[in-house]
Computed example of a mutant assay.
Amino acid sequence: MRRFHCTCGQEVMFEDSECSACGQLLGFNPETLEMLAVFADEGEELMFGDDGSLRPCALRDHPVACNWLIPAVDEHTQCRSCRLTRTIPAQTTPINVQRWNILETAKRRLVYSLLWLGLPVVDREEDPDVGLAFDFLEDQRTNPLVKKQVVLTGHNDGVITLHAIEADDVHRVKAREQMNERYRTVLGHMRHEIGHYYWDKLIRNSDWYPRFRRLFGGEEYYRQALDYYYTYGPAPNWGSRHISAYASAHPWEDWAESWAHYLHIMSTLETATGFGVLPQADVYSSDFHVLMQKWEQLTVLMNSLNRSMGMPDAYPFWLTPQVIVKLRFIHQVIAATAEK
């Protein structure tokens, strides 16, 4: 994530709708990835940009607190991130209002990264069959009024499903311990599932597919592989070939986990560059080996800072040579896609 500033010079955060120093109203333009100040207030209608050609998302003055902008001529009322959401948890339950806010906040960071990397973000309106959509669902564990007994996080033909309870910190920590995971966040879930979406869009039936099979393996027997993983656990030597234990369950999960980590890496490197921790050119370097060297240096710094605060490592993973080869492949796929 890059750094943003108000017109008064005050640094502001990606989620801010107002400058804490001068009170200026702010909005984020997803087309240019810039934070803009309000241009005019025409009655109850806010206009943003140098020419007032942008207006706020309909969920700005809402518990979701979306600060994204829409072209004034756009017929949609919600921004391109918010309108990706197809289903929300029942807002009659007070805690679900907070959950929806947390889920949308993470999704905006996800969409920012996709746009920054030049990846196509095609919604269900543009492609009714396999366009991108998000369902934030509940099951009877959290809401006895719904029919579903169990909601599983996953992806199917462009639809990403996430259980709304993943927005609760206590649940996530408990689930992480039960599943012996090193890392579990809402944004991490979304980055993983979007990896499945982009496998369908960029790898399946493409010239990249043969190389995918050489690096990750064949994708047959998916359900059987997951059943085996959840029954017997990962192979003892998974750490030498995979970024996580779950990545060893099946090549599709290996791809999605590697994809998620690539987004983790690139987003964090962009932030470090914005704050001057890394030279400007390093994040965009075509030399992937140099990129990985910078990432290793940065993770040592991040983890050391966390330990100084008595907190767990920010990035508790080790990138082996085989994992780096997979990340380089993803880097090449994304770079080629952005160039089109």
Score class of each variant (00 low, 15 high):
332 Q>I: 08
233 G>M: 08
169 D>L: 00
67 N>M: 14
184 R>S: 10
178 Q>K: 13
250 H>M: 04
50 D>E: 14
60 R>Y: 02
219 E>A: 10
29 N>F: 03
159 V>Q: 05
207 D>Y: 15
59 L>W: 03
150 V>K: 09
101 N>F: 07
261 H>V: 06
162 L>Q: 08
152 L>N: 15
200 D>Y: 06
31 E>A: 09
9 G>P: 15
135 D>Y: 13
293 Q>T: 06
70 I>K: 03
28 F>R: 04
47 M>F: 14
208 W>V: 09
240 S>A: 13
131 G>T: 10
4 F>P: 10
219 E>R: 14
57 C>I: 04
165 I>Y: 08
63 P>R: 09
163 H>D: 12
132 L>G: 10
64 V>K: 10
91 Q>E: 15
143 N>T: 04
220 E>T: 15
183 Y>R: 12
156 N>E: 12
122 V>M: 05
122 V>N: 03
319 L>M: 08
88 I>L: 11
242 H>L: 06
270 E>Y: 11
188 G>P: 13
39 F>L: 06
193 E>N: 06
337 T>P: 03
163 H>N: 12
292 M>P: 04
108 R>F: 00
244 S>I: 05
275 F>G: 14
103 L>H: 05
193 E>S: 07
103 L>S: 02
277 V>Q: 04
320 T>K: 03
252 W>C: 01
159 V>H: 07
256 A>H: 00
72 A>V: 04
28 F>K: 02
25 L>F: 08
122 V>K: 01
270 E>M: 15
46 L>M: 13
248 S>H: 11
10 Q>V: 11
289 H>T: 15
41 D>W: 09
31 E>K: 11
125 E>W: 10
43 G>P: 00
208 W>N: 07
278 L>E: 03
52 G>F: 10
3 R>E: 08
41 D>M: 15
7 T>K: 13
227 D>I: 03
22 C>N: 00
297 Q>P: 00
26 L>W: 02
140 Q>S: 07
151 V>S: 06
340 K>P: 02
190 M>I: 11
67 N>P: 13
214 R>G: 01
5 H>D: 12
130 V>A: 08
74 D>N: 01
315 Y>E: 09
289 H>V: 11
26 L>S: 04
325 V>A: 12
104 E>H: 12
153 T>W: 12
103 L>I: 05
124 R>W: 15
262 Y>V: 01
27 G>Y: 01
106 A>M: 07
16 D>V: 10
9 G>Q: 14
259 W>A: 02
225 A>E: 03
186 V>R: 05
286 S>W: 00
